[in-house]
C-alpha cells in the first residue's frame, strides 16, 4: 500500500510500487486527464504536477511519490467551476482533438505559478516538453496568455477582498 496525495486527497493505492503514476491515476483512481501518449517521457500528454513542478507521469514510479503533492487537471477545477487555466483554454477554444491539452494545461499551470506574467519566450520554453499534433499551438499560446491574466486578476481580487489565497 502506498499513500498518494492527489489533488489534496490521500489515496491508498494497492499496486506494484514500480507502477508509473499514469496507470494508477487512470486505472486505479479512474481519472482521465493525464493521457498515455508515448510512455517514454517524450510527448508530455501524461503530465501532472508533483510539488508544483510538471513531471511526465508515464515514467514516474509511485514509489517516489509518497509524501509529495500530486495535482492533475481534475484538481484545477471542474466544468461548472473551471480554474483559470481551464477557463482560458475553453474561452480560446484551444483544442482540436484535445488529447494533448491536459498536459499543456499542467505545463501552463506550473509556469504561471512560478512566473505570473511570462513573456512569449518563457511560455514557449515552458511548453517545449509537450507535443500537439493537430496544430493547435497558436491557440494554446493565447490560452496561456489569457490564463495569466485570469490568475493575476484572481490573485489581486483575493488579496484585496479577503486577504487570503483562495487556492
Amino acid at each position: 500500500m502506498i499513500t498518494l496525495s492527489v489533488n489534496g486527497r490521500d489515496h491508498q493505492v494497492d499496486a506494484d510500487p514500480a507502477t508509473p503514476l499514469l496507470y494508477v491515476l487512470r486505472d486505479d483512481l479512474e481519472m482521465n486527464a493525464a493521457k498515455f501518449g508515448c510512455g517514454l517521457g517524450q510527448c508530455g500528454s501524461c503530465m501532472v504536477l508533483v510539488d508544483g513542478a510538471p513531471v511526465v507521469s508515464c515514467v514516474t514510479p509511485i514509489v517516489v511519490l509518497e509524501g509529495r503533492a500530486i495535482r492533475t487537471v481534475e484538481g484545477l477545477g471542474t466544468v461548472d467551476d473551471p480554474g483559470p487555466v481551464q477557463r482560458a483554454f475553453m474561452e480560446e477554444q484551444a483544442a482540436q482533438c484535445g488529447y494533448c491539452i491536459p498536459g499543456f494545461m499542467i505545463s501552463a499551470q506550473a509556469l504561471l505559478e512560478r512566473t505570473p506574467s511570462p513573456s512569449d519566450a518563457e511560455i514557449r520554453d515552458a511548453l517545449k516538453p509537450n507535443l500537439c499534433r493537430c496544430g493547435t499551438h497558436m491557440r494554446i499560446m493565447k490560452a496561456v496568455r489569457r490564463a495569466a491574466g485570469f490568475m493575476q486578476t484572481a490573485d489581486a481580487g483575493a488579496t484585496t477582498s479577503n486577504g487570503e489565497d483562495r487556492r
Binding site: 492533475t72 473551471p82 483544442a95
Partner: peptide
C-alpha cells in the same frame, strides 16, 4: 466537446 476535455471528463 471542449469542456469535458479540459476538465478530465471521459
Amino acid at each position: 466537446d471542449i469542456p469535458a476535455k479540459v476538465t478530465g471528463g471521459a
